Structures are given as C-alpha cells and as structure tokens.
Amino acid sequence: MFVRTASERDLAAIRVLLVETWHATYDAIYGVRRVTEITDDWHSFASLRARLTRPNSEFLVADDGKRIGGMAFASATTDPKIVLLNQLYVHPDCQRQGIGRSLLEEIEASFPEARTLRLEVEEANASAIAFYEANGFRPAGRTADCGGGSGMPAVVLEKRLG
C-alpha cells in the first residue's frame, strides 16, 4: 500500500474502514450500541469532510489501488511545535503489514517544525499502546475526556521529534 493525501472520493471508503475497525476494536470495551453512536458522530461524512480542509493538518490514506487499508489524521495545536495525532487506524485485515508505521512516518514528515507528536488512546486498547510504544511513544499522562467530548478515559502518549 502507498500513502497519499485523502480526497473527497475516499470518504465513503474511509468511513467503512473506521466503522469496521472501531467495531472490531471497541465492541468488547464499550458495547456495539455505544460504538455505533460514536462512529455515527465522529466518523460521519460531515466530520470526515471537514478534516479535508482543516488548516495546519494532514489527512492521509494507505491505498493499494483496490482498497483503503488505513488512514491517519493529525493537526497542529495552538503551539506549532506540538502536533496531535487525532486518528491512525488500519483495517483489521491489513494490520501487521507496516501500514501503520508508514502512515505514522508520513505524518511525522508532514510537520517538519513539530518537536512533539501527541495522541490519546483508550487504555484498554493494549495492541494500539504496544504499537505506539514500539514506534517511540512514551506515556505522558491521562485524560478523562478522550478526543474532547467523549467522556471516555484515555492514556496520553508522546513522541519527541527532530
């Protein structure tokens, strides 16, 4: 798969990827109903479309010409030296093939002025935490409101850049 900037034509496939990945990852933690509510809100077409034009951000997909196997979205904070990795998801069928690492590397390259890459991850998502730690992230705290507005607790991880 190759990594490229997402476009309007990718939104339907990105939404499918996010819904399927969220159910595979979080149904056992939050339940099917709650995951459906979250994906209907956070991963709606309107929400995804807004990311395409958000200033100081990067919206990427991993694409093999037949399917979207992964996606990532990151945005600069009010401090341009700190970038927030809002999303990085790889479809369960495509995991452990280097796609997540490729997306992460491209996000890092997209913000050359950044010195810190920060993210929030559900503390029960052990495989995601292991992935991020294997890619240089370290614990930096906790939040009671993952993503701002969810009311879900999360671990905050950071990676020093440059």
Score class of each variant (00 low, 15 high):
residue 1 M to E: 06
residue 5 T to N: 13
residue 10 D to R: 01
residue 14 I to R: 06
residue 14 I to Y: 09
residue 16 V to C: 02
residue 16 V to F: 04
residue 21 T to M: 12
residue 22 W to F: 15
residue 23 H to A: 14
residue 26 Y to I: 13
residue 27 D to F: 05
residue 28 A to G: 03
residue 28 A to Y: 04
residue 29 I to M: 05
residue 31 G to A: 08
residue 33 R to S: 15
residue 34 R to M: 08
residue 34 R to V: 12
residue 34 R to C: 04
residue 35 V to K: 03
residue 38 I to H: 09
residue 41 D to F: 14
residue 42 W to T: 00
residue 42 W to M: 07
residue 43 H to S: 04
residue 46 A to E: 12
residue 47 S to Q: 10
residue 47 S to L: 00
residue 47 S to R: 10
residue 48 L to H: 01
residue 53 T to W: 01
residue 53 T to P: 02
residue 57 S to V: 07
residue 58 E to R: 11
residue 59 F to M: 06
residue 61 V to F: 08
residue 62 A to S: 14
residue 63 D to F: 10
residue 64 D to Y: 14
residue 65 G to K: 02
residue 68 I to Y: 04
residue 70 G to W: 14
residue 71 M to R: 03
residue 72 A to T: 03
residue 76 A to Y: 07
residue 77 T to M: 15
residue 80 P to E: 08
residue 82 I to T: 15
residue 83 V to H: 06
residue 85 L to H: 02
residue 86 N to I: 02
residue 90 V to Q: 05
residue 91 H to K: 06
residue 92 P to Q: 03
residue 94 C to P: 01
residue 94 C to K: 03
residue 95 Q to Y: 03
residue 97 Q to I: 09
residue 100 G to Y: 02
residue 100 G to H: 06
residue 104 L to A: 14
residue 109 A to G: 12
residue 114 A to H: 06
residue 115 R to N: 11
residue 116 T to R: 15
residue 118 R to A: 09
residue 118 R to E: 11
residue 118 R to I: 06
residue 120 E to R: 01
residue 122 E to K: 10
residue 123 E to M: 15
residue 124 A to L: 13
residue 124 A to N: 13
residue 125 N to A: 10
residue 126 A to L: 09
residue 127 S to A: 01
residue 129 I to P: 04
residue 132 Y to T: 13
residue 132 Y to V: 12
residue 136 G to W: 12
residue 138 R to L: 10
residue 143 T to R: 04
residue 144 A to E: 12
residue 144 A to W: 07
residue 147 G to N: 03
residue 147 G to M: 06
residue 148 G to I: 11
residue 149 G to C: 05
residue 155 V to R: 11
residue 158 E to G: 00
residue 159 K to C: 09
residue 160 R to K: 14
residue 161 L to A: 01
